[in-house]
Design a protein around this nucleic acid. Structure first.
Lengths: 145, 145
DNA sequence: TATTGTTATACTCTATAACTATA
DNA sequence: TATAGTTATAGAGTATAACAATA
């Protein structure tokens, strides 16, 4: 077997396909949130804040893969836009608990619907069953399930 | 319904989960290719070159979502490393067809195996059937199926 | 005149390090 | 001394515009 042709699979590796998909999703959902600070990224932060219930900045950064220094100015802008707020944790005054404002929740609800629409359009190659399967599998693999 | 509470789904949107997964995959597979120029990105380019069979730079950039100006220096470095080569298209001398060198194919085969290992480790939450389903669905959704 | 690819420049995003405040 | 967050600075990555070669 010393001169055997190296075997390279015909299909793309999963990582490459995931990156392509993620990029297409980000590009396609961006127009749905023209007023969101930092666009899709800001939306993901706000969405995670709502889901995680009063996360600290450290927890938020870890969950989203965002450096704490990046999260600082990201939250600065979400706060300036009146969509989120920092609250000092009474049990440890070093920590800031992040919450979505009422206005932030309203915006989030509007954008969730638009994002969902854009996502469905992007999944045009898949039928309904396949879409549900993909959502479930990705969520499970990412630890969200 | 004017005062109804906005409905925000409990689960993360698909775009966010895809981005998280793609980032984890890139981070985890990067150590498998310490000598590849531009790391995972270079690997994806080389892999696409092999799969697409003599793509032009324009086609390659479109497929991978990489700007043509970025692709130029990316290919410069792959060429300098002896992994890929540019060939002027005889039918249109403006075009450069990209090919993987023999050495590039060898490296690709080695890395494919390592990447696959790393990917399987990352899919720890999924059983074998689910992993196969995820691969098929992502490839189909991304247009690779 | 339009297109492929290159080069030069500027911009955005992200990470590294030093700092403040709490523990 | 260690940790949460901020600020300042530098670095990587990316896009915009001008250019050369070819169609």
């Amino acid at each position: 077997m010393t001169t055997a042709t190296p075997t390279i699979p015909d299909h793309a590796d999963l990582g490459s396909a995931l990156q392509t998909l993620a990029r297409e999703f980000a590009e396609r959902t961006a127009p749905a949130m023209p007023d969101m600070p930092h666009g899709v990224r800001g939306y993901h932060v706000l969405s995670a804040v709502h889901r995680c219930a009063h996360p600290t900045q450290a927890a938020l950064g870890l969950h989203l893969g965002i450096d704490r220094t990046v999260l600082t100015y990201l939250l600065d802008d979400l706060e300036a836009a009146g969509l989120a707020a920092r609250q000092v944790d009474p049990t440890d005054r070093r920590r800031r608990r992040i919450v979505a404002t009422e206005r932030g929740l309203g915006e989030l609800a509007v954008m969730c619907a638009r994002v969902r629409e854009a996502e469905e359009a992007l999944l045009g190659r898949l039928d309904d069953d396949e879409r549900a399967q993909l959502r479930a599998l990705v969520a499970k693999a990412a630890g969200g399930g």
